[in-house]
Computed example of a mutant assay.
Amino acid sequence: MEWALPQWGQLITLFIIATAMGMDAFSLGLGMGMRGILLRQVMLTSVSVGFFHMFMPMVGIAIGRILGVLVEQIAVMIGGGLLIFLGINMVYQAWGKSRANTSNNTANVSSIWGVLLFSLSVSLDSLSAGFSLGLFEVDTILAVLLFGWISMLMAGTGLLLGRHVSTWIGGYGEAVGGMILIGLGLRFLV
Rank of each mutant, 00 (worst) to 15 (best):
L39S: 08
L39G: 07
L39A: 06
R40Y: 07
R40G: 06
Q41D: 03
Q41K: 02
V42S: 04
M43D: 04
L44F: 04
T45C: 06
S46E: 10
S46H: 12
S46V: 11
S46W: 10
S46R: 09
V47M: 00
V47W: 03
V47A: 03
V47K: 03
V47G: 02
V47C: 03
V47Y: 01
V47F: 01
V49H: 15
V49G: 15
V49T: 15
V49S: 15
G50F: 08
G50Y: 08
G50D: 10
G50W: 08
F51T: 10
F51S: 10
F52I: 13
F52D: 14
F52R: 14
H53V: 10
M54L: 04
F55N: 11
F55M: 12
F55A: 12
F55I: 13
M56N: 07
P57K: 00
P57R: 02
M58C: 06
M58A: 09
V59M: 12
G60S: 09
G60A: 10
G60R: 05
G60N: 11
I61M: 01
I61H: 01
A62W: 03
I63D: 04
I63N: 04
I63K: 04
I63Q: 04
I63V: 06
G64S: 02
G64V: 00
G64L: 03
G64W: 02
R65C: 05
I66P: 14
I66V: 15
L67N: 10
L67F: 11
L67V: 13
G68F: 05
G68K: 05
G68P: 04
V69G: 14
L70S: 12
L70N: 09
L70M: 12
V71C: 09
V71Q: 08
V71K: 07
V71P: 09
E72Y: 15
Q73E: 14
Q73A: 13
I74Y: 12
I78P: 12
I78R: 13
G79V: 05
G79P: 08
G80R: 04
G80A: 01
G81A: 09
L82I: 15
L82W: 14
L83E: 08
L83Q: 10
L83T: 11
L83N: 08
I84V: 12
I84E: 10
I84Q: 06
F85E: 13
F85T: 14
L86D: 04
L86T: 03
G87P: 05
G87Y: 04
I88D: 02
I88H: 02
I88T: 01
I88Y: 03
N89T: 06
M90R: 00
M90C: 02
M90F: 01
V91I: 02
V91E: 01
V91H: 00
V91N: 00
Y92G: 04
Y92P: 05
Y92T: 06
Y92W: 07
A94G: 09
A94K: 09
W95N: 00
W95F: 03
